[in-house]
């Protein structure tokens, strides 16, 4: 008996004007599978990931993730906002340039979706986020970063997780934080963009 793959992409196409970025992509990923997309810059790796998350609506083909299936094409209606949001809340994505929320602390970045999308209460979300931030080595990375960029030091006098200006975090810290934000939003699938991003 064969197990149904977790992610199934068939005949996916996407054009940006005259530029055909994705041409008939077929891809299957088993549950628990780890897949690396390789290709030169501009070959469409990010575009494929964004298609799977429907941040970019493909021109043709179909995508199935778990039980949710989306068909694309001229004749097919575009998916509605609500089901789309529900679908995305079950997946995670690490963006190539992080896209952290600069008006929130590190902790707030992580618990934002847990509270406002998953409906978790604040103390549970905070406890979960703290334990995961700890696990991701955020604290170690943070102190290493402090040693390397002494200018940052003064801003960190207050508690570690209350640090507001997350856009000033150094690269490895951003990476960890973003990863934590998407991974531990309790999702079953995670798409990471670029190896150095996660």
């Amino acid at each position: 008996m064969t197990v149904k793959p977790m992610i199934e992409i068939s005949w996916l196409r996407k054009c940006f004007g005259p530029l055909e970025v994705l041409k008939d992509i077929n891809l299957q990923v088993e549950q628990g599978g780890v897949v690396a997309l390789l290709g030169p810059s501009g070959s469409g790796k990010s575009t494929l990931l964004r298609c799977i998350n429907l941040l970019v609506v493909p021109d043709d083909g179909s995508i199935r993730v778990g039980e949710t299936k989306f068909e694309f094409g001229k004749s097919v209606q575009q998916p509605k906002t609500k089901p789309l949001a529900a679908f995305r809340s079950r997946t995670g994505m690490v963006f190539q340039n992080f896209n952290l929320f600069p008006h929130m602390t590190v902790l707030q970045n992580v618990i934002e979706a847990l509270i406002h999308v998953k409906g978790m209460d604040k103390s549970t979300a905070t406890a979960l986020a703290m334990s995961q931030l700890e696990k991701s080595g955020w604290r170690t990375a943070h102190s290493r970063c402090r040693r390397r960029y002494p200018a940052v030091k003064n801003n960190v006098l207050r508690s570690l997780v209350l640090w507001r200006w997350s856009q000033r975090l150094c690269f490895s810290m951003k990476r960890r934080q973003r990863l934590t934000r998407s991974w531990w939003a309790k999702c079953s699938r995670l798409y990471r963009n670029s190896p150095q991003t996660g």
Binding site: L55, A85, R90, T91, F95, N97, N99, A113, V117, A185
Partner: peptide, 15 residues
């Protein structure tokens, strides 16, 4: 990217 990140987390546009 900010609104994209928000949608990727499952937020509706109004949220």
């Amino acid at each position: 990217g900010q609104s994209e990140a928000a949608s990727a987390l499952g937020m509706t546009p109004s949220l």
